[in-house]
């Protein structure tokens, strides 16, 4: 445990269990050292926000958590990342199985150019989660309900997902991620392409998702981080500068860099 980043007391107060624990994670792209010795523990059933200026490595670190970095050429990840005590970079781990457990929502809504139903049903289909058609229908409905979009799309499930508005598309993408029954939801700036109303809807949704999932969200908006997260991690130049309760990070930051960033002096 890295003492200068997080204390046991703080952790014990807000988060009963640790979902993901990362220790000394380094990421290299070719000669670029993108992440330097990051250690963090992400609690379950809460929202953890990653903030920091552009290029600070917060998205890279997020993508380490479901091994999406595997698909990037020359990307080297070292250190340990444990999900429920299991090393996700162990050679025995199939990233496909990991990604069903750790779902991801991307910056730009990226529904498949298929029907809304097929978008949500795709994950359960390839993972064999549904026994039959009615079972699959149930999963799709539940996922769309949890993503707070069911009411808007229930009458047009066979319409193409790409025909929805940006905010609706993003919620369908969240439903798609939920449908594989994940335990963790990673969100990479999920509201950056949305208007304020859609953003408010997604934020409300994220707060509800906390009941069932551990949510990790990368955001550029400090207000958003303050509004929806319980834990906040501040990244700068590839290092994790500060990680703690959102309230503490925003009201009483320990590190002067964090203070500069949240007061708008760097970034």
């Amino acid at each position: 445990m890295n003492e200068n980043i997080i204390s046991h007391e703080e952790l014990a107060m807000t988060a009963p269990t640790i979902k993901i624990s990362a220790r000394n994670v380094d990421v290299h792209y070719d000669k670029t050292h993108a992440i330097r010795g990051v250690s963090a523990e992400i609690p379950s059933n809460s929202v953890t926000a990653f903030i920091g200026p552009s290029g600070c490595g917060k998205s890279t670190f997020l993508r380490c958590l479901n091994r999406m970095n595997d698909t990037i050429k020359n990307c080297q990840v070292s250190g340990d990342i444990m999900l429920d005590g299991e090393d996700i970079y162990d050679p025995k781990v199939d990233p496909v199985q990991l990604r069903a457990k750790v779902g991801m929502v991307f910056q730009k809504p990226n529904p498949f150019p298929k029907s809304i139903y097929d978008n949500v049903a795709y994950g359960p289909r390839i993972h064999g989660l549904a026994r039959d058609k009615s079972d699959l229908d149930g999963i799709v409905e539940q996922a769309l309900r949890r993503a707070a979009i069911w009411g808007e799309v229930k009458d047009r499930l066979s319409a193409p997902g790409t025909g929805l508005s940006g905010g609706q598309q993003q919620r369908v993408c969240i439903a798609r991620a939920i449908a594989t029954a994940p335990e963790v939801l990673l969100m990479d700036e999920p509201c950056s392409a949305l208007d304020p109303i859609a953003t408010a809807q997604i934020e409300e949704l994220i707060d509800e998702l906390r009941q069932n999932y551990s949510v990790v969200i990368v955001t550029h908006s400090m207000h958003q981080a303050a509004r929806i997260s319980q834990k906040t991690a501040f990244f700068h130049m590839g290092t994790l500068v500060e990680f703690g309760d959102t309230k503490t990070v925003f009201t009483n930051p320990r590190d002067p860099q964090t203070e500069s960033y949240i007061t708008g002096r760097i970034g």
């Binding site: 698909t71 990604r99 991307f106 990226n110 390839i126 993972h127 798609r176 991620a177």
Partner: peptide, 23 residues
């Protein structure tokens, strides 16, 4: 084919081959 489609498929746990064949 936009890379976001590949990311989306990989993100829900499709294998490389499934991503290619299905999407």
């Amino acid at each position: 084919v936009p890379p976001s489609i590949r990311s989306a498929a990989l993100g829900v746990g499709a294998s490389k081959m499934q991503t290619t064949i299905h999407h």
